[in-house]
Design a protein around this nucleic acid. Structure first.
Length: 255
DNA sequence: ATGGCAGGAAGCTCCTGA
C-alpha cells in the first residue's frame, strides 16, 4: 500500500498537479487538506477519470479535507466525535484493511491568540477522540497537516523559530501526546536527509533557500508501523509553476 | 524592519495561512 498526505492549498488551483501526480505515483490512497471547495463543487469527475473514488468534507474559502482511493472508501466519518468543531478539518474512512484519517490541524496564528488556544484545545479533543479510534481500528493512519514541527531538526532555523507558533513547547507536547499513544512518525522510522521539510513560505524565496518546516506527517498505529517500508517527501512538487506551499508526504506499507 | 506571497470572496481591499 502506498499512502500520501498533501495540503493542496486549493484543490481547484492544484487539480492539474494532483492529477499528474496520481498518474505518475499511483498511490492507493491520498489524504488532502485545505481543499477550500464546497462539496457541491468537488471535482469528482476529473478524479474518477484518474481512477480514484473520493470522499470529502469541504467548505468555501478555508479548510476542507478529502480522501481519494483506488477502492471505494467505506464507513466514512466527518469530524471529531463529541466535539462540535465548525471548520472541516477531519475525515476518516476505511480503505481496504486500513483506517485512514485525513487531518488539518489548526494553524494557531500566534502564541497567546484565540486561535492558538483553539489549536491546543483542538489537539486535546483530537487526542481524546483518537484514543477510542485506535481501540476500534488497530490499523490506523493519520495523514495530514499537523501544523507542528515536532523537533528542532524539523526547522530550518530553530533559533529564529524558538517559541513561535508551529514550534512552541505546548504544541510539541500535544504532538508527543499522540506519540505516547504508540503512534509513530513514519518519516523518522528511516534515515533521512538533513534539512528535510514539507512546507516553505511563498515569500522571500524560501523554497529556493530551503527555509522550510516539516509540519506534514503520516502517523502510524502500533499495528501498522512495523509494516512501513519507506517514508519520503516529494519535494519536487514544490518546484512546479503555481505550486502548493506544501509538498506531498508518502509512505509505503507492506501488507 | 512584521515586510515579503498566494488563494478566495468581494469588488479594486481584506482576511487567513504558516
Amino acid at each position: 500500500m502506498k499512502l500520501a498526505a498533501w495540503n493542496v492549498n486549493s484543490l481547484n488551483v492544484r487539480l492539474p498537479h494532483l492529477l499528474d501526480w496520481l498518474a505518475r505515483e499511483r498511490p492507493d490512497a491520498i489524504c488532502l487538506q485545505e481543499t477550500k471547495v464546497e462539496d457541491k463543487n468537488f471535482p469528482l469527475e476529473a478524479i474518477a477519470k484518474a481512477g480514484y473514488r473520493a470522499v470529502f468534507s469541504g467548505q468555501k474559502t478555508y479548510n476542507g479535507v478529502a480522501i481519494l482511493a483506488r477502492e471505494s472508501p467505506q464507513a466514512v466519518e466527518e469530524g471529531i466525535s463529541g466535539y462540535a468543531d465548525e471548520p472541516k478539518r477531519v475525515l476518516s474512512a476505511n480503505v481496504g484493511d486500513l483506517r485512514l484519517v485525513s487531518a488539518y490541524v489548526p494553524n494557531g496564528q500566534s502564541i497567546g491568540s484565540d486561535k492558538y488556544r483553539y489549536k491546543l484545545d483542538w489537539l486535546g479533543q483530537f487526542d481524546r477522540w483518537l484514543e477510542g479510534e485506535l481501540k476500534k481500528h488497530p490499523r490506523l493512519a493519520i495523514l495530514g497537516d499537523f501544523n507542528i514541527a515536532p523537533e528542532d531538526r524539523d526547522v530550518h532555523d530553530p533559533k529564529a523559530w524558538e517559541g513561535q507558533v508551529l514550534v512552541s513547547a505546548p504544541e510539541r507536547a500535544a504532538f508527543q501526546q499522540l506519540i505516547g499513544r504508540g503512534l509513530k512518525d513514519s518519516f523518522r522510522l528511516f534515515d533521512q536527509p538533513e534539512k528535510s521539510y514539507s512546507w516553505w513560505d511563498y515569500r522571500m524565496n524560501a523554497f529556493r533557500r530551503n527555509l522550510g518546516l516539516r509540519i506534514d506527517h503520516i502517523l502510524l498505529s502500533p499495528g501498522l508501523a512495523p509494516h512501513c517500508r519507506s517514508s519520503s517527501i516529494h519535494v519536487d512538487m514544490r518546484k512546479l509553476e503555481r505550486p502548493s506551499d506544501h509538498a506531498p508526504v508518502v509512505v509505503e506499507i507492506d501488507l
